[in-house]
Structures are given as C-alpha cells and as structure tokens.
C-alpha cells in the first residue's frame, strides 16, 4: 500500500503527463491539493517510488533557462498504476459502511 505522499506525487506525475519534473509536479500538487511541498520532498518521494519501480525517469535536455542543467522527467509505470489501484481499493474496503464519503460508487 502506498503512503499518502507517494499517492499524491504519483497522481501528480500522471496529471502533468509529458515533461513531469520537479517544478510542474510541485505546481500541480499545489493547484489541486493546496499543498506547498518542497522540491526536496518531491524528489525524495520520487526516488523512493523509482526504487520500488512505480515510476521510471529519463534525463531531459539542458536548457539555458535552467542554467545549463538537465531536467529529470518521470512517468508512472504499469506497476505504479496497479499499486495506486490496489491502494484505493484497500481504502474503499476499509471505508465501506462508514460515513466518511468514500463509499464504492
């Protein structure tokens, strides 16, 4: 089962789609979830997810806007999606019959 940060970051990577690196991921989480995570937290979570095989990354092109530094872009792997599904399923089972607004629809 995924941790809360891991869920949020995974979903954000999926939402951003192409070119999902630190800044867009951060902005997406801030926009949707209203949480101002630091880049450090995000990269730390991403590297944990990568170790578990839930995301894959590739290095992008260096740009002058970034002072000649490359981006590292992430995509969610099939295992990552499965893990999200099973997390949500587990949550729904746990919540079933409880009035917490997570009833199976």
């Amino acid at each position: 089962m995924l941790g809360e940060l891991e869920q949020v970051v995974l979903l954000a990577v999926m939402r951003v789609g192409k070119d999902a690196y630190g800044v867009p991921i951060h902005d997406e989480i801030q926009r949707r979830a209203g949480r101002d995570l630091t880049l450090g937290t995000i990269y730390k979570t991403l590297s944990r997810l990568e170790e578990k095989g839930f995301v894959a990354s590739h290095v992008g092109e260096p740009t002058t806007q970034r002072g000649g530094r490359r981006t590292r872009c992430y995509v969610v792997s099939a295992a990552g999606k499965r893990s999200l599904q099973s997390t949500f399923k587990a949550l729904r089972h746990m919540a079933s019959g409880l009035d917490v607004g997570l009833e199976p629809t």
């Binding site: 800044v23 630091t38 450090g40 990269y43 970034r66 490359r70």
Partner: peptide
Amino acid sequence: SHVIGDLIEQQERGSLWMLRETISAL
C-alpha cells in the same frame, strides 16, 4: 543538477523560497 536546475528556473520566487528549498533538499 536537477534540483539546482529547478531552482534556477524558478528563481523569481525569491531568495526566501530558494533558502527553504535548499534546506529541504539538503
């Protein structure tokens, strides 16, 4: 390199933000 790239890209957010991000990254 990735973190610094992100910081440079977003440096208009100000030095306070920069400091916070740096501390967090460290």
